[in-house]
Write a protein that binds this DNA or RNA. Structure first.
Length: 288
DNA sequence: AACCAGGGAAGAT
DNA sequence: ATCTTCCATGGT
């Protein structure tokens, strides 16, 4: 067992991160302790990494703990990457002070990108969440992980694509997946298991290239590709205009009579680049 | 009971 | 290419 204290050189609202993570019932959280346990897999070996906040938003610091000395550097690097601790949120904040979202960012400052812990899980979760209300969507992802994942010391490790690739549609229908959704999940997992789709390799491509490749897959549309880029890879310039939550948040913030059209969203969002992901996150946050 | 939900595919134009 | 319809399933 090792532990490492980490101090950031930027502001970071980790309590908001914990709040966002608390939506996912399969994540091991102790919010009063400001602590989260993260499943990390290296070379097929399971590691549990504990991240605990001990600082403030203005002066954030953390204690990171895990067991494997061998992977210590990789684990710390992964945690930095996951929580984007290198990012200077002050820059984002000042960028939006010069836009039509100035009030929004004053009300909800320094919202970090909260990534999912695993690229494959993120993609499955995003497909599962298509067109479902959040409550039921999380019921489905919870059943998915309970049924096909593995729990170690209270921490859930996500199913592998290989395992899901071997399922039948009926296996997921039992969990109240629609037949169509079950096909999307299984067929996409088959592509990954067969090596036709490599999520790790998409890290090296631009947003546009990733969207173009993912949208070819049956069951993945623009919304899913954009959300995967944002919550999977943690990319900074996504604005999912088809998203109902984004539409409702824009309606509320700008005081519209009805939900905005795609064209109206285009117009409102001019000037938000190249950090539109932070606009999206902060808009979602405003209606939580 | 009707409409909604952090969409997408398939069909029609 | 773009618009319309249908698909599934629970929540409010």
């Amino acid at each position: 067992m090792w532990e490492e204290k980490i101090e950031l050189h930027t502001m970071y609202d980790f309590d908001y991160t914990l709040y966002r993570l608390s939506y996912d019932p399969m994540i091991f959280l102790q919010r009063d302790e400001r602590l989260v346990k993260i499943p990390v897999v290296f070379d097929g070996d399971y590691h549990i990494v504990t991240v605990q906040a001990i600082g403030t938003t203005a002066k954030p610091s953390f204690i990171v703990r895990s067991d494997s000395e061998e992977y210590k550097d990789q684990i710390i690097s992964r945690i930095f990457d996951l929580f984007q601790w290198d990012r200077e949120l002050e820059k984002i904040q000042s960028h939006f002070q010069q836009t039509n979202l100035d009030k929004l960012f004053r009300d909800y400052p320094a919202t970090p990108i909260v990534r999912d812990f695993d690229l494959y899980y993120c993609l499955m979760k995003t497909i599962i969440h298509q067109q479902l209300n959040m409550k039921f969507a999380y019921v489905l992802t919870t059943r998915f992980i309970e049924q096909f994942g593995e729990q170690v010391d209270g921490v859930w490790f996500y199913p592998t694509p290989e395992k899901i690739a071997n399922l039948q549609v009926e296996d997921l229908r039992k969990l109240q997946f629609s037949g169509r959704k079950a096909e999307y999940v299984i067929d996409t997992s088959k592509k990954i298991a067969a090596g036709e789709l490599n999520l790790e390799e998409l890290k090296d491509k631009t947003d546009e290239e990733v969207i173009k490749e993912l949208v070819k897959i049956r069951g993945i549309g623009t919304w899913t590709a954009e959300n995967w880029l944002l919550f999977g890879l943690g990319r900074e310039d996504l604005f999912p205009k088809a998203d109902i939550g984004i539409q409702n948040a824009v309606k509320q913030y700008f005081g519209l009579e009805r939900k905005p059209t795609i064209e109206e969203l285009e117009a409102f969002s001019s000037g938000w680049e190249p950090y539109r992901s932070f606009a999206s996150l902060t808009l979602w946050r405003s209606i939580e």
